[in-house]
Design a protein around this nucleic acid. Structure first.
Lengths: 154, 154
DNA sequence: TCTGAAAATGGACCTTT
DNA sequence: AAAGGTCCATTTTCAGA
């Protein structure tokens, strides 16, 4: 399951654009299209490629507000933390959720339609939780860079 | 450029899995494969679908650490902010970058190989900037939910 | 690596509202 | 006009030799 430089070059190409035809990828990295096909298949089977997805522009579908929320919990009991994790993950407006070390315990990246929807969600997610000590809201004025790319050539 | 329920259903499907064949998508939403093809093409041309990409598992390629950094600037002069934005965006380990309102000015999501690499990057990105007042580091212990999906059915 | 079969894409054309 | 459906050529994928 070790990756050579061909694999890295392929991963780098498809994480930028997964619509490129395999023969074109082959030209870029100097492999036959069959070799490209085999490698991509293996990378997917091995889980190196988690999935292939279309990135939808949030603003185009009415989600024009990105909010980052830091959450500090009251009690770190495992069952309570687990319940919170599940609540956060189940919320479709919570696009990303990280369990972090430091002053705060969770960082959420949320996509909402407008401020009211966020206010509503804070009620459901934080006020009604009974285990949130406090939370801090950072409103994004500009999403300068959004992606899930991993450095592969550096 | 308005989206009907067919468009929404298609977007929802492809943002989960863009490898689904168009005829299969057509069955799911009750359209012919040609209609699916036309709609997806238009959604892409209109920028509703920003791009189609493969999601690479960071850990599989040696990037096993996710760090979230909040950055407060010293001086909000536009040219200085702009220079910072460019520096952040140009760094491949900075996967996401948000310009936010509140106590801090930037939030960065970074993918690094290990703590040393992060330490090195803080030097390059923050200490050498001359315009960073302070920064706060949140180390992710668990990436509970990672994605860029937008709620489309809710 | 090459070849070829099966599948998917995407355009042309006609029909419906 | 705008959008759907059917049909068909072209391209792409992907397995076996």
């Amino acid at each position: 399951m070790s990756l050579d430089s061909f694999d890295r070059a392929l991963l780098d190409a498809v994480q930028r654009d997964a619509t490129t035809a395999q023969h074109a990828l082959g030209e870029q990295v100097n492999l036959s299209s069959a070799a490209v096909n085999r490698r991509l298949k293996k990378l997917t089977a091995d889980g190196v490629i988690r999935k292939t997805v279309a990135l939808v522009d949030p603003a185009s579908v009415g989600y024009s507000l990105t909010v980052i929320t830091e959450v500090q919990v009251e009690n770190e009991r495992l069952d309570l933390l687990d319940a919170m994790k599940r609540t956060f993950m189940a919320c479709p407006q919570v696009q990303q959720c990280y369990y972090v070390a430091g002053e705060y315990d969770f960082v959420l990246i949320m996509q909402v339609k407008h401020m009211e929807q966020y206010t509503e969600l804070t009620r459901a997610l934080f006020f009604e939780s009974n285990n949130v000590k406090r939370f801090n809201t950072l409103v994004s004025m500009s999403n300068l860079k959004v992606g899930l790319e991993v450095p592969l050539l550096a």
